[in-house]
Design a protein around this nucleic acid. Structure first.
Length: 413
DNA sequence: TCTGGGGTCCTAGGACCC
DNA sequence: TCTGGGGTCCTAGGACCC
């Protein structure tokens, strides 16, 4: 692999379920699902029955009556995910973590210390297996995209090293859906033109792809089909938005129903924003109706927000607007809020004060709200998250996913 | 009690400015 | 009768990923 860059993509196999099987030997070799009401993660044995994450527990039981449901050991997932990334970090500082169980690394500059990229990948796999008891699949290639493709091909518990000299042969034989960004919709569009392999994609006319998928997507996909991927490893990535949502089953589309939910969602988001001093300017709500169609509404304000009540009030206004525009919708099945346009980390009190906007009264209100939030944050810091709340926790906790699970999915702000 | 939750990026159209 | 053109910001929706 002479001078070519060597990128590695490492991915813990069926992570949550594998941790459960590692912790409890009786579960090994058996179909396991983490969760209950909804499947949060499934073991390979369970996936073989068609069980996927997000699937309702009842449906999963229908597909696989012997399926074993377990409560998640969420703090273990965090610890083990971190530990696996640390192992990679022992070889190179150029690590880009994608999620709790997945990372890219650039090992171009450390082969003189640790041997070939293939040897490094093998060493990482050995260490993760020995130290954590988990299988981690790794792909090695010249670009991020191809490394990711290779790790998918390597699964389960495998290593695939793609030689730059034969990379196009390798890539072109694979189905289009292995390309990052090709999901069901794009796959179907490509299939309508007889394109099912990456090789066929590579040999398509660029203009035709642009027409089929739009100029940006067409051009990007064509480049990826030729393994042209300019992306570098980014070690420090910040989130651009923070959100929270909650499925409601089927609830009346009434303010007495949606206001408490919005307050709770806003609380969850705003707490995180304040923690990292990253207030946001745009608030987006999502309302999903009973028939699963969903609508979004957004509003951008001049001065950044991070108080719970400011976000909750804006969200409430937006949801009122949605419902006013859909007078025939009598029930809602999900509510979500997302805050974007996040500022750089900065002391929030100063930013929170409207810059010459609003009257004295509204300014006083903002100050009071910021104070109340700080008090709440402080109490929770000492006594735990549930020590204080805007609404009764019991009212909503019933069917929702554990907080610990939500936290795992949160990106670093 | 009949489809989870946290994110990213792209597109298209409109408003607005110069 | 005709009606520029680029840039930026915002909103709504869609596709996708883990």
């Amino acid at each position: 692999m002479s001078q070519a860059a060597a990128i590695l993509h490492a991915d813990l196999d069926a992570f949550y379920a594998s941790v459960e099987q590692m912790l409890e030997p009786n579960l090994r070799g058996k179909p396991v699902a983490v969760g209950g009401g909804v499947v949060l993660a499934a073991s390979y044995e369970a996936k073989a029955f068609g069980i996927t994450s997000g699937m309702p527990g009842r449906r999963a039981r229908e597909l696989c009556p012997q399926l074993i449901f377990v409560d998640g050991h969420f703090s273990e997932y965090q610890r083990l995910g971190d530990a696996a990334i640390t192992v990679i970090g022992d070889f190179t500082p150029a690590v880009e973590r994608i999620s709790i169980d997945e990372a890219f690394a650039d090992v171009t500059g450390c082969t003189h210390l640790f041997g070939s990229p293939a040897a490094i990948a093998a060493a990482i796999r050995t260490r993760v297996r020995a130290e954590l008891g988990l299988a981690i699949s790794i792909g090695v290639a010249r670009t991020k995209h191809l490394a990711k493709v290779a790790s998918q091909v390597a699964k389960p518990d495998g290593l695939v090293v793609v030689d730059p000299a034969t990379e196009l042969q390798f890539l072109h034989a694979l189905p289009v859906e292995l390309i990052w960004g090709v999901g069901p919709a794009t796959k179907a569009r490509l299939a309508s033109q007889g394109i099912t392999t990456i090789g066929q994609l590579a040999n398509s006319r660029p203009r035709a792809l642009d027409r089929l998928l739009g100029p940006a997507a067409g051009t990007k996909l064509f480049a990826l089909a030729w393994n042209q991927d300019p992306r570098q490893i980014q070690t420090h990535r910040r989130a651009h938005s923070a959100g929270a949502q909650s499925a409601l089953g089927r609830k009346p589309a009434a303010e007495r129903v949606f206001r408490p939910v919005l307050l709770q969602l806003a609380d969850r988001i705003a707490t995180r924003l304040r923690e990292k001093s990253r207030p946001g300017r745009t608030v987006t709500v999502r309302v999903r109706f009973a028939d699963l169609r969903s609508v979004t509404r957004a509003l951008t304000v001049p001065s950044p927000l991070s108080t719970t009540l400011a976000i909750a009030d804006l969200a409430t206004e937006l949801v009122r607007g949605v419902l006013a525009d859909h007078p025939n919708e009598k029930s809602i099945s999900l509510l979500g809020i997302s805050v974007s346009h996040l500022g750089d980390p900065a002391p929030i009190m100063q930013l929170e004060l409207p810059l010459g906007l609003g009257d004295a009264r509204s300014r006083r209100k903002d100050v009071a709200r910021a104070k109340a939030d700080r008090a709440m944050d402080a109490i929770r810091k000492r006594f735990g998250r549930d020590a204080v709340n805007y609404t009764s926790v019991a009212a909503n906790a019933a069917r929702s996913v554990p907080d610990a699970f939500r936290s795992l999915a949160e990106k670093m702000l």
